[in-house]
Amino acid sequence: MIAEFDLSRRTALVIGAAGGLGREQALGLARAGADVAIADLNQSGLQATSLAIKAVGREVDVFPLDITVPGEVRAVVDAVEKRFGKIDILVNSAGMTRRGASEDYDQGLFERILDINLNGMFYACQNVGRLMIKRGGGRIINMGSIFSSAGIAESPAYAMSKGAVAQLTKTLAIEWAPYGIAVNAILPSWFDTAMGNVVADREKFYAGTAEVPSSADLAARTTGRVPLRRLGKPPEIVGATVFLASNAASMVTGHLLAVDGGFLAQ
Protein backbone atom coordinates (compact mmCIF):
# COMPACT_ATOMS: atom_id res chain seq x y z
CA MET A 1 0.00 0.00 0.00
CA ILE A 2 1.25 3.48 -0.84
CA ALA A 3 2.26 5.19 2.43
CA GLU A 4 -0.15 8.10 2.02
CA PHE A 5 -3.11 5.73 2.20
CA ASP A 6 -1.87 3.82 5.22
CA LEU A 7 -4.14 4.23 8.24
CA SER A 8 -1.99 2.38 10.80
CA ARG A 9 -2.24 3.79 14.33
CA ARG A 10 -5.45 5.64 13.47
CA THR A 11 -8.73 5.08 15.25
CA ALA A 12 -11.95 5.30 13.28
CA LEU A 13 -15.50 5.48 14.56
CA VAL A 14 -17.97 4.17 11.99
CA ILE A 15 -21.62 4.84 12.81
CA GLY A 16 -24.12 2.66 10.98
CA ALA A 17 -21.63 -0.20 10.65
CA ALA A 18 -24.03 -3.13 11.17
CA GLY A 19 -24.65 -3.53 7.47
CA GLY A 20 -24.71 -1.99 4.04
CA LEU A 21 -22.08 0.57 3.09
CA GLY A 22 -21.18 1.30 6.73
CA ARG A 23 -20.04 -2.29 7.25
CA GLU A 24 -17.90 -2.15 4.09
CA GLN A 25 -16.39 1.15 5.19
CA ALA A 26 -15.50 -0.19 8.64
CA LEU A 27 -13.89 -3.26 7.08
CA GLY A 28 -12.10 -1.15 4.47
CA LEU A 29 -10.63 1.19 7.08
CA ALA A 30 -9.46 -1.84 9.10
CA ARG A 31 -7.81 -3.37 6.04
CA ALA A 32 -6.03 -0.03 5.51
CA GLY A 33 -4.62 -0.38 9.05
CA ALA A 34 -7.04 1.50 11.31
CA ASP A 35 -8.50 0.27 14.58
CA VAL A 36 -12.25 0.63 14.41
CA ALA A 37 -15.04 1.45 16.83
CA ILE A 38 -18.36 0.48 15.32
CA ALA A 39 -21.76 1.77 16.38
CA ASP A 40 -25.28 0.93 15.28
CA LEU A 41 -28.79 0.30 16.54
CA ASN A 42 -28.68 -3.24 15.12
CA GLN A 43 -26.58 -5.20 17.60
CA SER A 44 -26.52 -8.56 15.83
CA GLY A 45 -25.26 -6.80 12.71
CA LEU A 46 -22.59 -5.07 14.80
CA GLN A 47 -21.36 -8.40 16.12
CA ALA A 48 -21.04 -9.76 12.58
CA THR A 49 -19.06 -6.70 11.45
CA SER A 50 -16.91 -7.00 14.57
CA LEU A 51 -16.00 -10.62 13.74
CA ALA A 52 -15.09 -9.63 10.18
CA ILE A 53 -12.80 -6.85 11.44
CA LYS A 54 -11.16 -9.17 13.96
CA ALA A 55 -10.42 -11.54 11.08
CA VAL A 56 -8.50 -8.68 9.43
CA GLY A 57 -6.40 -8.46 12.59
CA ARG A 58 -7.33 -4.99 13.79
CA GLU A 59 -8.64 -3.82 17.15
CA VAL A 60 -12.41 -3.44 17.18
CA ASP A 61 -15.09 -2.68 19.72
CA VAL A 62 -18.86 -2.43 19.40
CA PHE A 63 -21.05 0.38 20.68
CA PRO A 64 -24.85 -0.04 20.56
CA LEU A 65 -26.28 3.35 19.64
CA ASP A 66 -29.61 5.00 18.86
CA ILE A 67 -28.22 7.95 16.93
CA THR A 68 -31.44 9.93 17.31
CA VAL A 69 -30.80 10.38 21.05
CA PRO A 70 -28.25 13.19 21.59
CA GLY A 71 -27.22 11.89 25.04
CA GLU A 72 -26.47 8.43 23.65
CA VAL A 73 -24.30 9.88 20.90
CA ARG A 74 -22.32 11.86 23.43
CA ALA A 75 -21.93 8.83 25.70
CA VAL A 76 -20.73 6.60 22.85
CA VAL A 77 -18.21 9.19 21.64
CA ASP A 78 -16.87 9.51 25.19
CA ALA A 79 -16.73 5.73 25.54
CA VAL A 80 -14.84 5.33 22.26
CA GLU A 81 -12.33 7.96 23.32
CA LYS A 82 -11.86 6.17 26.64
CA ARG A 83 -11.45 2.76 24.99
CA PHE A 84 -9.13 3.82 22.11
CA GLY A 85 -7.63 7.04 23.51
CA LYS A 86 -8.70 9.15 20.53
CA ILE A 87 -10.82 9.36 17.39
CA ASP A 88 -8.95 10.26 14.19
CA ILE A 89 -11.66 9.38 11.71
CA LEU A 90 -15.45 9.59 11.94
CA VAL A 91 -17.61 7.93 9.30
CA ASN A 92 -21.30 8.82 9.46
CA SER A 93 -23.07 6.04 7.63
CA ALA A 94 -26.39 5.58 9.44
CA GLY A 95 -29.40 6.25 7.25
CA MET A 96 -32.85 5.21 6.10
CA THR A 97 -35.33 5.97 3.35
CA ARG A 98 -38.95 5.27 2.41
CA ARG A 99 -40.88 6.23 -0.70
CA GLY A 100 -44.18 8.04 -0.73
CA ALA A 101 -46.04 10.80 -2.58
CA SER A 102 -44.78 14.10 -1.17
CA GLU A 103 -48.20 15.65 -0.72
CA ASP A 104 -49.32 12.77 1.53
CA TYR A 105 -45.98 11.99 3.18
CA ASP A 106 -46.51 10.98 6.80
CA GLN A 107 -45.23 13.40 9.44
CA GLY A 108 -43.92 10.66 11.73
CA LEU A 109 -41.96 9.00 8.93
CA PHE A 110 -40.66 12.38 7.76
CA GLU A 111 -39.41 13.22 11.26
CA ARG A 112 -37.90 9.74 11.73
CA ILE A 113 -35.86 10.00 8.52
CA LEU A 114 -34.65 13.51 9.38
CA ASP A 115 -33.76 12.32 12.89
CA ILE A 116 -31.59 9.48 11.62
CA ASN A 117 -30.09 10.93 8.44
CA LEU A 118 -29.56 14.47 9.64
CA ASN A 119 -29.97 15.15 13.34
CA GLY A 120 -27.99 12.06 14.35
CA MET A 121 -25.23 12.95 11.93
CA PHE A 122 -25.01 16.44 13.37
CA TYR A 123 -24.83 15.16 16.95
CA ALA A 124 -22.02 12.80 15.93
CA CYS A 125 -20.10 15.55 14.09
CA GLN A 126 -20.52 17.92 16.99
CA ASN A 127 -19.35 15.52 19.69
CA VAL A 128 -16.46 14.06 17.73
CA GLY A 129 -15.64 17.55 16.41
CA ARG A 130 -15.15 18.81 19.97
CA LEU A 131 -12.57 16.06 20.60
CA MET A 132 -10.85 16.68 17.29
CA ILE A 133 -10.64 20.41 17.99
CA LYS A 134 -8.90 19.61 21.28
CA ARG A 135 -6.50 17.19 19.63
CA GLY A 136 -5.84 19.52 16.70
CA GLY A 137 -7.18 17.54 13.79
CA GLY A 138 -9.19 14.72 12.30
CA ARG A 139 -11.21 13.44 9.36
CA ILE A 140 -14.97 13.35 9.12
CA ILE A 141 -16.69 11.53 6.29
CA ASN A 142 -20.44 11.98 5.94
CA MET A 143 -22.59 9.80 3.71
CA GLY A 144 -24.63 11.93 1.34
CA SER A 145 -26.29 10.64 -1.80
CA ILE A 146 -26.69 11.55 -5.46
CA PHE A 147 -29.88 13.07 -4.04
CA SER A 148 -27.78 15.54 -2.09
CA SER A 149 -27.87 17.49 -5.32
CA ALA A 150 -30.28 15.89 -7.81
CA GLY A 151 -34.03 15.88 -7.27
CA ILE A 152 -36.03 12.64 -7.06
CA ALA A 153 -39.78 12.22 -6.99
CA GLU A 154 -41.48 10.61 -4.00
CA SER A 155 -38.54 10.73 -1.57
CA PRO A 156 -38.95 14.15 0.03
CA ALA A 157 -37.52 13.35 3.45
CA TYR A 158 -34.54 11.43 2.09
CA ALA A 159 -33.61 14.06 -0.52
CA MET A 160 -34.06 16.90 1.97
CA SER A 161 -31.94 15.17 4.58
CA LYS A 162 -29.19 14.38 2.08
CA GLY A 163 -29.20 17.92 0.68
CA ALA A 164 -28.80 19.09 4.24
CA VAL A 165 -25.92 16.63 4.75
CA ALA A 166 -24.07 18.34 1.89
CA GLN A 167 -24.47 21.68 3.63
CA LEU A 168 -23.54 20.25 7.01
CA THR A 169 -20.35 19.00 5.38
CA LYS A 170 -19.44 22.32 3.76
CA THR A 171 -20.32 24.42 6.80
CA LEU A 172 -18.25 22.34 9.20
CA ALA A 173 -15.39 22.09 6.68
CA ILE A 174 -15.10 25.87 6.57
CA GLU A 175 -15.67 26.37 10.27
CA TRP A 176 -13.24 23.69 11.44
CA ALA A 177 -10.49 24.06 8.80
CA PRO A 178 -8.47 26.25 11.20
CA TYR A 179 -8.38 23.27 13.63
CA GLY A 180 -7.01 20.85 11.05
CA ILE A 181 -10.28 18.95 10.69
CA ALA A 182 -11.28 17.91 7.20
CA VAL A 183 -14.99 17.28 6.58
CA ASN A 184 -16.03 15.65 3.32
CA ALA A 185 -19.01 13.73 1.99
CA ILE A 186 -19.42 10.73 -0.29
CA LEU A 187 -22.41 10.76 -2.63
CA PRO A 188 -23.25 7.20 -3.70
CA SER A 189 -25.79 6.19 -6.31
CA TRP A 190 -27.87 3.03 -5.80
CA PHE A 191 -25.73 0.26 -4.28
CA ASP A 192 -26.52 -3.41 -3.79
CA THR A 193 -27.37 -3.16 -0.09
CA ALA A 194 -30.54 -3.51 1.94
CA MET A 195 -31.01 0.23 1.56
CA GLY A 196 -29.85 0.76 -2.01
CA ASN A 197 -31.35 -2.13 -3.92
CA VAL A 198 -34.75 -0.55 -4.40
CA VAL A 199 -35.69 -3.00 -7.13
CA ALA A 200 -35.17 -6.15 -5.05
CA ASP A 201 -36.69 -4.58 -1.95
CA ARG A 202 -39.42 -2.56 -3.60
CA GLU A 203 -42.19 -3.87 -1.35
CA LYS A 204 -40.36 -2.39 1.64
CA PHE A 205 -39.55 0.96 0.05
CA TYR A 206 -43.08 1.42 -1.18
CA ALA A 207 -44.79 0.15 1.97
CA GLY A 208 -47.76 2.39 2.69
CA THR A 209 -47.99 3.81 -0.84
CA ALA A 210 -50.93 3.13 -3.11
CA GLU A 211 -49.00 1.21 -5.73
CA VAL A 212 -45.72 -0.71 -5.83
CA PRO A 213 -44.03 -0.19 -9.22
CA SER A 214 -42.92 -3.22 -11.25
CA SER A 215 -39.27 -4.31 -11.16
CA ALA A 216 -38.77 -3.28 -14.78
CA ASP A 217 -40.28 0.13 -14.17
CA LEU A 218 -38.15 0.72 -11.07
CA ALA A 219 -34.97 -0.52 -12.74
CA ALA A 220 -35.55 1.92 -15.59
CA ARG A 221 -36.02 4.75 -13.10
CA THR A 222 -32.95 3.87 -11.03
CA THR A 223 -30.00 1.94 -12.48
CA GLY A 224 -31.35 2.70 -15.96
CA ARG A 225 -30.41 6.34 -15.35
CA VAL A 226 -26.87 5.55 -14.17
CA PRO A 227 -24.34 5.78 -17.04
CA LEU A 228 -22.66 2.55 -15.80
CA ARG A 229 -26.14 0.90 -15.92
CA ARG A 230 -25.78 -1.09 -12.72
CA LEU A 231 -25.94 -0.99 -8.94
CA GLY A 232 -22.74 -0.18 -7.11
CA LYS A 233 -21.11 -3.13 -5.36
CA PRO A 234 -20.61 -2.39 -1.64
CA PRO A 235 -16.79 -2.77 -1.73
CA GLU A 236 -16.75 -0.02 -4.36
CA ILE A 237 -17.35 2.52 -1.58
CA VAL A 238 -14.10 1.63 0.17
CA GLY A 239 -11.62 3.43 -2.10
CA ALA A 240 -13.28 6.81 -1.57
CA THR A 241 -13.57 6.21 2.18
CA VAL A 242 -9.92 5.26 2.72
CA PHE A 243 -8.79 8.11 0.47
CA LEU A 244 -10.76 10.74 2.41
CA ALA A 245 -9.59 9.25 5.73
CA SER A 246 -5.93 9.27 4.71
CA ASN A 247 -3.03 11.67 4.22
CA ALA A 248 -3.57 11.35 0.48
CA ALA A 249 -6.50 13.74 0.92
CA SER A 250 -4.68 16.24 3.15
CA MET A 251 -5.77 19.24 1.03
CA VAL A 252 -9.33 18.00 0.48
CA THR A 253 -12.08 19.46 2.64
CA GLY A 254 -15.69 20.51 2.08
CA HIS A 255 -15.77 18.24 -0.95
CA LEU A 256 -18.69 16.12 -2.15
CA LEU A 257 -17.20 13.03 -3.77
CA ALA A 258 -19.64 11.24 -6.05
CA VAL A 259 -19.26 7.46 -6.27
CA ASP A 260 -22.15 7.09 -8.62
CA GLY A 261 -21.29 5.45 -11.94
CA GLY A 262 -21.46 8.88 -13.58
CA PHE A 263 -24.99 9.81 -12.49
CA LEU A 264 -24.22 13.39 -11.43
CA ALA A 265 -22.01 14.04 -14.46
CA GLN A 266 -25.03 13.91 -16.76
Binding site: I152, A159, A164, Q167
Partner: peptide, 16 residues
Protein backbone atom coordinates in the same frame (compact mmCIF):
# COMPACT_ATOMS: atom_id res chain seq x y z
CA UNK B 1 -28.25 22.67 6.75
CA UNK B 2 -31.92 23.60 6.66
CA UNK B 3 -31.51 25.65 3.51
CA UNK B 4 -29.60 22.80 1.88
CA UNK B 5 -32.65 20.70 2.68
CA UNK B 6 -34.96 23.35 1.26
CA UNK B 7 -33.09 23.24 -2.06
CA UNK B 8 -33.42 19.44 -2.26
CA UNK B 9 -37.08 19.74 -1.30
CA UNK B 10 -37.50 22.24 -4.14
CA UNK B 11 -35.89 19.90 -6.69
CA UNK B 12 -37.75 16.85 -5.40
CA UNK B 13 -41.19 18.47 -5.43
CA UNK B 14 -40.27 20.26 -8.65
CA UNK B 15 -39.77 16.99 -10.52
CA UNK B 16 -42.58 15.20 -8.71
Amino acid sequence: VSKGGVEQMTRTLGVE
